[in-house]
């Protein structure tokens, strides 16, 4: 009976993941391995960026004054738009995780505040390969070299995510593994300021147990995959801490604004 319960939970979380996220690893891999019917538009310099802005991300850069700003600020703005959309998707995903909506509302806020960026960077790896990153719902591909060529501090934004992604992708997780991993990131009992820690720890324990069993059956040849993934949780926390510091620096020194939802998340984070 317990095993059946665990399988049901894994299935519910996987279905919620497939339903709520516009992009997933299997979709991204089809595009990144050249198997999509239409290949993504490659953004590798200022000209191709301008073209992409007119077609792929017109909604994000049009009619809000952003189109006259410098390239780094425009890219930063598009990153923010994508982040906001992903936070929205993650919120819906979290609400579909059994037990989450029954938690104290303040704790739901806390879990999202501290979990969304870790989850976002874990999922971002699915859209990355060593040469670049899928953007605009998989319709564009921006090269790592182009992102590195931007001026400081913007050039420091994505490289740590690529470095993480290359190691993370080497674990060869599929979407069913990632769904449970993302749920485990969100339902984390040691976020600062949680009211009902015990309740969340129980939820987390259940999800982590299901993740462990799922990895055993889905990756029988990699006995150490579970502990490796637990280490990735710590790596993601570090990645988010550094990202939050960089965003604060950009906010202080650059002529750019931060979306109100992201401001809420970053404020008093670490």
């Amino acid at each position: 009976a317990q095993l059946a319960d665990q399988k049901t939970l894994a299935k519910q979380i996987y279905e919620a993941y497939l339903k709520n996220f516009n992009m997933n690893k299997s979709k991204a891999r089809v595009i990144l391995t050249g198997k999509a019917s239409t290949p993504p538009f490659v953004i590798h310099d200022m000209d191709t960026l301008r073209l992409a802005e007119k077609t792929l991300v017109a909604k994000m850069v049009g009619n809000n004054g952003i189109q006259n700003k410098e390239v780094e600020v425009r890219i930063f703005h598009c990153c923010q738009c994508t982040s906001v959309e992903t936070v929205t998707e993650l919120t819906e995903f979290a609400k579909s995780v059994p037990g989450f909506v029954g938690l104290d509302l303040n704790d739901q806020v806390t879990l999202l505040k501290y979990g969304v960026y870790e989850a976002m960077f874990a999922m971002l790896a699915s859209s990355m390969n060593k040469d670049g990153l899928l953007v605009a719902y998989g319709n564009g591909f921006i090269t790592r070299e182009f992102l590195k060529s931007l001026r400081k501090p913007f050039s420091d934004m994505m490289e740590p995510k690529f470095e993480f992604a290359m190691k993370f992708n080497a674990l060869e997780l599929d979407d069913s593994d990632l769904a449970l991993f993302v749920a485990a990131i969100i339902c984390c009992g040691d976020r600062p300021g949680l009211v009902n820690v015990g309740h969340i720890e129980k939820m987390q324990e259940r999800i982590v147990q299901v993740l462990r069993l799922h990895l055993q059956s889905n990756h029988p040849d990699d006995a150490f995959l579970f502990p490796k993934l637990l280490q990735k949780l710590a790596d993601l926390r570090q990645l988010v801490t550094e990202h939050a510091q960089l965003v604060q620096e950009i906010k202080k020194t650059e002529d750019t604004s931060l979306h109100p939802l992201l401001q809420e998340i970053y404020r008093d984070m670490y």
Partner: peptide, 21 residues
């Protein structure tokens, strides 16, 4: 905490209200 995270709070309570980009 809810007061300091109005948009997150709204997303949690009402999924049908989109966030402006």
């Amino acid at each position: 905490l809810k007061e300091k995270h109005k948009i997150l709070h709204r997303l949690l309570q009402n999924s049908s209200s989109p966030v402006d980009l």
